[in-house]
Every structure is written in structure tokens, then in C-alpha cells.
Simulated scan of single mutants.
Amino acid sequence: MKWGGQQPSSRRFALSTLAGTAVALGGNLGGITTQLLGLDGGKLAERLQLDAVYPVRGLKRCVDGVYGFEFQYPASWLADQTVAYRAAQRAEASRALDMPPLARPPRQRPNVYEPVAAYGPAGSSGEENVSVIVAPIFEGFSLSAMGSPEKVATQFLATIAPEGSAKEAHLLSASMEYTVKGPNFARHNLSVITSK
């Protein structure tokens, strides 16, 4: 290999080799980064949170530093674009440089708590997904004040499938695993409720 009629310098060769290696690892070319990070069972990737970028052993990790949660999901799943779009809109509105219009006050949305993160299989309509909803809690609130898991789950299901709604909800376990069936859908859900 010659460069302009002469051998390339060893420095240039070393730099181009390092650059090529960095591109291959950074771009996960051929899945090499995924394979390397999985060699120790994914422990290094988890500690450095690299599994949020590169799939490791078939899973990726969602890490949210704002709300303080993290979970793993199948690497083939994609982020819900509606959730991402709404988050971008909220961020844009919070740092807008333009003054609000004087003609009419800005429209306020009611207190509706939407997912802050959601992932699901590509091409699905949401039947199978994992999502996180964050809502404020009252000062001094504790989960034990809500009552037993069975009581909380029963009250929750009564709001999802109230009498006369043509929906049926069945509690599968006290860990908030339940099914909901309506005229046009059937869902099997597992809910986790936590507080800080």
C-alpha cells in the first residue's frame, strides 16, 4: 500500500486504524459492540448505561434521569412516536422565545397524566407495550395508606371497566395483573405502582 508513491507513516496508519475501530464500535457495525458488551453478561454495559444505546443480550434499557426510573425492553421494540412528539412539544413550549399572543390566552390542557416513556413492537397498535406514567403525589402520602393491593386493584379496575360500560375486568393477581375486555379489544396488563 503506497500513498503518493511512498509508504504511509506509521503514525498515519495508527490514527486511521484507531478511527476505523472507533467508527466500527460506535456504529455497532455488524453488531460487534453488542457482542462485546454481552461477553460479561452485560454487567459492564449496565454499569456504564451503554445498554441504553446498544442492545445487550436482546434487551435495551430506558434510563430516565429526570423522574428516576429505568427498565429493560426487547431490543426490537421502538419508542412510541406520539409520546416522543408530545414531550418535544412540552419542551419547546417551556423554552419558547416568542411572547404569547395578546388576542387570546394560551389554551391550558387539563391535568391528564400521559406516559413519559413508552415502547412497543414495530407496526403494532399498542396492544403490547411498556409505558411509564408519572403523576404527583400528596405530601406525606404512602402506598400503605391506599389499602391492600387487592383493594387498590379492585378500585382501579372499577374505573377502567365500570358497570354498564360493556367492558369486563378480571384481577389475575394482587400484584396488579389484570385483563380488560371490551367489544373491540382485549388487554392483558401488569401494573407497577411506586412512590419516592
Rank of each mutant, 00 (worst) to 15 (best):
K2S: 13
W3I: 09
P8D: 11
R11P: 01
R12I: 01
T17D: 12
L18R: 01
A19N: 02
T21Y: 06
T21V: 15
A24F: 00
L25Y: 02
G27S: 08
T33D: 05
T33H: 03
T34M: 04
T34E: 10
T34D: 01
T34L: 01
D40K: 00
D40R: 01
E46A: 15
R47A: 07
L50F: 10
A52K: 00
V53A: 05
Y54H: 04
V56Q: 08
L59E: 12
L59D: 05
R61L: 13
C62Y: 04
D64H: 01
G65Y: 01
G68V: 15
E70G: 09
F71P: 02
Y73R: 06
A75S: 10
S76E: 13
W77Q: 05
A79N: 06
V83T: 15
A84M: 12
Y85D: 08
Y85P: 02
A88I: 00
R95E: 14
A96L: 12
R104S: 09
R107P: 02
Q108G: 07
Q108L: 12
P110R: 04
N111K: 10
V116Q: 01
A117Y: 04
Y119C: 03
G126M: 03
E127K: 08
N129K: 12
I133F: 05
P136S: 08
P136D: 08
I137S: 14
F138T: 15
L143A: 15
L143E: 15
L143R: 14
S144Q: 07
S144T: 06
P149L: 13
P149M: 13
E150C: 08
E150F: 13
F156E: 03
I160D: 09
I160R: 09
A161K: 05
P162I: 11
E163L: 09
E163C: 06
S165P: 04
A166R: 14
H170Q: 09
H170I: 11
L171D: 03
S173E: 07
S173K: 00
S173Y: 00
Y178L: 06
V180L: 09
P183C: 05
R187Q: 14
N189K: 00
V192P: 00
V192Q: 05
T194E: 13
K196H: 04
K196A: 06
K196T: 07
